[in-house]
Amino acid sequence: MSKFFWLAWTCVAMLPVHANASEWNSSGIDGHYVLSSLIDEQKGQQKVFFSLYKAKYNNNGFERFLSQCNKNGFDKTVLMTINGQEVQMDKICRRTEDSKNYWVYTPTTNEGLAFLITQFKYTETVNVHKVFVNIYNQETELEFKISAQGFVEAWKKSEQIL
């Protein structure tokens, strides 16, 4: 099996446990970066979240995910291009139970969320373009392809839970 298969599998296995509204998730890989998507509940409303991880190869050849942010909470809003349309996203630093931090992105507006949901409902693949700026102020252009398979069923299931 390829390194990328194991990277994707590890990413899915390491998704944060806060996904209480649904089990749906999907991931895309761009070089050493992984963008995972999931459905979650926030303030009584269903939302779609993207989690951004950086993968690194250690001496044993295994991949592991490194912290990409150093504080818990809201940082700012950023733009992501989703299937060719710019969407304003809230950028939030979250901490997992094992004390690893990662960036989470969710649409800022209800219109942005509606657009994202429509893309997952009516396309097979959602293309996400993100400009990532690391702690050294270096920019990286990232392109992710996220599978929409299983999204509709999970979205309906999570609507029933709410």
Rank of each mutant, 00 (worst) to 15 (best):
Y102T: 05
S37D: 03
T96N: 15
S22I: 13
K47H: 05
V12Y: 04
V12Q: 03
V78G: 11
F144R: 10
T10Y: 10
S51V: 09
I39Y: 00
E159C: 00
F4V: 14
E86G: 01
E124L: 09
P16I: 01
L142F: 01
K121Y: 09
S37L: 03
N20T: 09
Q46H: 13
T118H: 00
F50R: 14
N20C: 01
N110R: 05
M1H: 05
G84V: 06
Q42N: 11
P16H: 02
T96L: 11
K157A: 15
M1F: 00
P107Q: 12
V87W: 06
S158D: 00
T140V: 12
Y122P: 07
K56R: 13
Q160E: 10
L142N: 07
T108C: 04
K3P: 02
S158A: 11
F5R: 04
N60K: 15
Y53H: 02
V131C: 00
E139R: 14
E159F: 02
Y102F: 14
V48C: 08
S36P: 10
E124P: 01
L15Q: 14
S27W: 02
R95N: 13
E86F: 04
S158Y: 03
I146S: 05
V48H: 00
N101A: 07
I39M: 00
L35Q: 13
T106K: 02
K71D: 11
L38G: 08
S22F: 10
D40G: 03
S2G: 07
V131A: 01
Y136W: 04
I117R: 02
M89Y: 02
A21Q: 09
I82V: 15
V48P: 08
N25C: 07
E63P: 13
Q138N: 06
K157D: 15
W155H: 13
N70L: 01
